[in-house]
Every structure is written in structure tokens, then in C-alpha cells.
Amino acid sequence: MAVKDYIRERFLPHIWCPGCGHGTVMSGLIRAVEQLGINKNDMVMVSGIGCSARISGYLDFHTLHTIHGRALAFATGVKLSKPDLNCIVPMGDGDALAIGGNHFIHAARRNIDITAIVMNNRIYGMTGGQFSPLSGIGVNATTAPYLNIDNAFDVVKLAKAAGATFVARTTTYHAKQITDLIMQAITHKGFSVVEILSQCPTHFGRKNKEGSAVDMMKRYREITTPIGSKKKKENPDLIERGIFVQENNPEYCIEYDKIIKKAMKG
């Protein structure tokens, strides 16, 4: 295993807090690329702003660190000009669904061949623990000292409804599944969304009395279950993990090429 071949060692140790799940996601992502045997020069990573977006600085791919929420818009441009590159967009929950909510649904609607990884820690970590559209009711945050009353998005349902053709979910506790799902998402032709529940012990954990990073990971083990399991029927509150959608629909870059050919004929 040569994880180090894929990182810019001069920038490590990384800036993430002790126990932050984003490091586990990065590790899983590197292993996925390594197992697929993709040359790092064929990878492009586009990220926005936030803790999660810092990942693009650490990986030795072609990387762009762009503006808040607009990573998918930049990625769409990159992908259309160089369709042969494998495009990965790591996003936080706020970056993906608050600031970048519109870009998210439209990238899904176009079914452009991009892999979006939503690292969901249910809070804005970098700016000091404000609630995000994935925090959900009853969460304590800097901007919700009397507990949050906003409903949360369900990333899986949203992505599915918007037209994403590969939608999956896992957690940082299930580290092997991270690699497995990202591998499948990269190979899938079309817009892929992988939601990974990732602990933020510094802000979310502390404010919501969820304990240390270890406690939060144990909680992921307890509150999640594989899709369609018996446990889910007994306890509908459990969060399902696995692949929810995997279908083949026309991919945007291929359709765009057809338009170019048609126009050139005329």
C-alpha cells in the first residue's frame, strides 16, 4: 500500500482536529484510487470552502481549491473541457447543500460524470459551529443556542430526486465501505453522490454532548444499518447505509459530444 504516493507530504500533518472524520475519508479515497489503479495525473479534484475542502491541498492530483459552494460548477467546466479526467468533488454538508445547494441539484439533474463526496458532520466546523441544513431538529449549535428548529435535508433522497444516477451512504466507522463505495462511484458513468457521516468532535460533539471522536464513531455503529436489514424494520429511526441508486442514464459529456458532431455536420 502506497498511500504516501498520493499525498503532498510537505503539507502534513493536516489541519483537521484530532479525531476529525475527514482524515478517514481522505484515507479511504486514496485507497479507492490506488485500488482502481488510476494514474494520479488522470485525477482532478475540485473543492470549495470549509474543513472538508482542505482535502484538495493534501492530495497529489490535479487540484483546484475554489469558492464556497461552487466547486461543482468549476468541476462541470473542467469535466466538459477534459472529459477523460476522473473528477472528484469533496464537499462539506454546508458547502454542498446550503451555499452550493443549487449547483448540487443541477449537477445531479444533468447527470454529468462527477463523483461528489458529501462529508456530513452536520455543522460548520471551520467558522465555529453554526448549524447547517443537515443539522436537523434539536441540534445545539453556536447559532442555535436554544436548539435548532430547522428540518434537515436527506442527502440521499435529495440526490435521487434531483437525478443522480449513483447514490450511496456510509460512515467513518465503516472505513472499508468508504473505499468500496468511492471505487464504485468513480467507475460509475454519471453523477455519483456518496454521503459519508463524519464526526466533528470539536464542535458538533462538544455542543451536543456526544463525547469524543471514539464515542461518536461508536454511535455511527449503533445508529446505522445496511439497506433493507431486519433491524431497520424493527427500528425505523436507524439510518441506512449502502447503495441506494445505481442506474444508467445518458451522461452529459457524451450527449454534449453528440451535439458537437451534429452541429459540425450542418
Partner: peptide
């Protein structure tokens, strides 16, 4: 340990 380490510190 290697897979879960967030700091890529164990191999």
C-alpha cells in the same frame, strides 16, 4: 487501525 486513522499515521 490503518484504515480508520484520520491522520494517516499508521501503516
Amino acid at each position: 487501525c490503518e484504515l480508520r486513522c484520520p491522520d494517516l499515521a499508521i501503516e
